[in-house]
Design a binder for these strands. Structure first.
Length: 188
DNA sequence: CCTGGGATTTTCT
DNA sequence: GAAAATCCCAGGA
């Protein structure tokens, strides 16, 4: 079942936890890549110093202030694209960064190597590269079954969720200790 | 095991 | 002009 607009229009922390175990689906050159979301991070409100919205409305952050259920994609360090899902009502800036996925169908990575089913792609930059996601999808509507969308899992596994501080936000002062990173327990 | 640096571009000051 | 919601590789312990 494709996730609808009203799913994204809830508290970001709640949506972040709910997204774990859901499917991220990418349609690229006629092929469908389906992956399970295994790690996310929440960015919520202008008071969150780790969020791009902490500096207020700008051309770049406008999408975060928009309606929920759209993709917010930006480039960082000159080499990587980050995929975020916009949440909550219009004019409240919030989004969820997808950091890791587990692939469900065997497919080849951006580098050409074969990746087997069940393999986890960890790291937001690696993940977007694998799924061929770039800035052309910024502002993409994720509630249509086109190019990129999300689906709920029929029988979602009830794995334990681990909470941690978010990654790479040392500059965020008191906000850096907030445990807004959510991932499944890693039993290897 | 850990630390540090380079790649490279958008965004805001 | 500096910093950034990153990743990879090399080198030392």
């Amino acid at each position: 079942m494709i996730l609808k607009r009203n799913f994204y229009n809830q508290n970001t922390i709640r949506v972040a936890k709910e997204l774990l175990g859901c499917f991220l689906v990418r349609e690229y050159r006629g092929k469908i890549i389906k992956a399970i979301i295994t790690e996310v991070e929440a960015y919520r409100g202008e008071h969150d110093l780790a969020s791009h919205a902490s500096k207020g409305r700008t051309d770049r952050t406008e999408i975060m202030y928009g309606h929920p259920g759209y993709a917010y994609i930006y480039m960082i360090y000159g080499m990587y694209f980050m995929l975020n899902i916009v949440t909550e009502e219009k004019d409240f800036p919030a989004a969820i960064l997808i950091r890791a996925i587990k692939i469900t169908n065997s497919s080849s990575s951006a580098r050409g190597e074969e990746l087997k089913e069940g393999r986890e792609i960890k790291g937001p930059g690696k993940m977007t590269k694998f799924l061929h996601i770039d800035k052309s999808l910024n502002g993409h509507d994720l509630t249509k079954r086109k190019k990129l969308w999300l689906e709920s899992a029929a029988n979602k596994k009830r794995l334990k969720i681990i909470k941690s501080p978010r990654v790479g936000i040392d500059y965020a002062r008191h906000c850096k200790s907030w445990q807004w990173n959510f991932k499944f327990e890693n039993k290897s």
